[in-house]
Nucleic acid binder design. Structure first.
Length: 132
DNA sequence: ATTCTCACA
DNA sequence: TGTGAGAA
């Protein structure tokens, strides 16, 4: 399901379209870009081109603003999400240690009982334990 | 017609 | 954040 993500990230809408879709002014849309909440790409004529993802974020910002959250607060929300994803990546890249192996083995032992009872469970093989 | 940047009686 | 100017 990567192709879909890729398409949602394609910058294809000029600011005028985004304005109509989000009901935000060009001023506001450019301001949120300065705040690094969105990163529209530029076309050959230096015109900003927005993706579906950018529009989604803009819509979310609108909601947060309506809920009384200020720019600083909204920035924090996105900063946290970004950090959470970075941490997730770091965990995936983290090499498996001896302790991890022991822990995996221990978990498998505990699950063996449940494994026999349901045949439609997910394949619980050792290498499926990415989360440690 | 649209969008960009920059400045502010 | 609005608005207008001058350019592309």
């Amino acid at each position: 399901m990567k192709e879909k993500e890729l398409r949602r990230s394609l910058s294809v809408f000029p600011i005028g379209t985004v304005m109509k879709l989000t009901d935000l002014t060009a001023r506001q849309i450019r301001y949120y870009e300065e705040q690094e909440l969105i990163r529209p790409q530029r076309n050959d004529g230096n015109r900003r081109m927005y993706s579906l993802n950018d529009i989604d974020v803009l819509l979310e910002i609108k909601d947060y603003l309506a809920e009384g959250i200020n720019m600083a607060g909204i920035k924090h929300i996105y900063d946290m999400q970004a950090q959470a994803q970075q941490k997730k990546q770091a965990d995936l890249d983290r090499p498996v240690t001896d302790n991890d192996v022991r822990r995996i083995f221990h978990d498998e032992l505990l699950q063996q009982g449940r494994l026999n009872s349901d045949e439609q469970g997910q394949p619980t093989l050792f290498h499926t334990h990415k989360r440690l």
